[in-house]
Design a protein around this nucleic acid. Sequence first.
DNA 1: GTGGCTGCAAATGTTTTGCATCCGT
DNA 2: ACGGATGCAAAACATTTGCAGCCAC
Lengths: 154, 154
Amino acid sequence: MSLDRNGFADLLRGKGLKVTPQRLAVLSALFQEADSHLTAEEIYHIVKAENPDIGLATVYRTIQTLLELKIIDRIYLDDGYVRYEPGHIYETGDSHHHHHLICVKCGHVRSFQGDLLEEFEKKIEEKTGFQIQDHDVKLYGYCVDCLKETNVKK
Amino acid sequence: MSLDRNGFADLLRGKGLKVTPQRLAVLSALFQEADSHLTAEEIYHIVKAENPDIGLATVYRTIQTLLELKIIDRIYLDDGYVRYEPGHIYETGDSHHHHHLICVKCGHVRSFQGDLLEEFEKKIEEKTGFQIQDHDVKLYGYCVDCLKETNVKK
DNA sequence: GTGGCTGCAAATGTTTTGCATCCGT
DNA sequence: ACGGATGCAAAACATTTGCAGCCAC
């Protein structure tokens, strides 16, 4: 990640927010892993290790604030949990082509950048009259590791 | 829809389930509209009109049962509500190419059948080693009606 | 010092579950 | 009549909110 603790502090200050250890801890948790898709509960547990007194409500409030400022993004992988990831602005600068590959066996999630949907969307606009602004694409299948395992067993 | 009350009854019997007025009412609610995407609460209200004594728990239990039997499908439109629609097996026989167009202005949802993702998926498989089984595509934009309104106002 | 931020507990909204009763087979 | 299905109420969750005290500025 391109942001460290100093970067987070600047980010918060720049938005007129107070720089608190709780906020730094939540940001740090979300940005520490390259391809993180954490739930609120997971963030809470990570943050609690470093800051045992933090309350779950603070985690939720911080998430809410960070979402509004587009510092983080909310994603739904449809496994019953709401997840959060580093905001695309601070990641790749490109959300429109950011998709998720979800392994149906181990649940691993990885992001993928691709831009092959223009034609697809154009066709749909022609057929339906709908004017497409954005899309959300989830691909379900088997990740490389689970494919290897299956082959060994066969 | 191709199924009526008799069809529902046969369907339930065929799966070894009892045919109850509550189950028929829930099925009827879900299949009565061509492009329905109802929440549990919405189903409950519809069903209550005809069967005032039904409990919300029964609606949830029925939904659960129907999901397991693939008579209905669960969809997430990421507006905070879980929704249900007629199972693709009883609709088009084709789920892989069933996508959702969601209007960001009025919230209207319409389904769309399209099959232009093969190339897209093949490219991703080549680049990532992931083996894609299925996908979930949501397209956000403006529906025909909202586009009309916008034009008039301009 | 002040206003925003936090922790705690209580409230909220959705979905699930326990249990006695009921009804489809 | 048997066992699954139902209705009700309570429980279980995830998330939000009210409020008194705290701390970053």
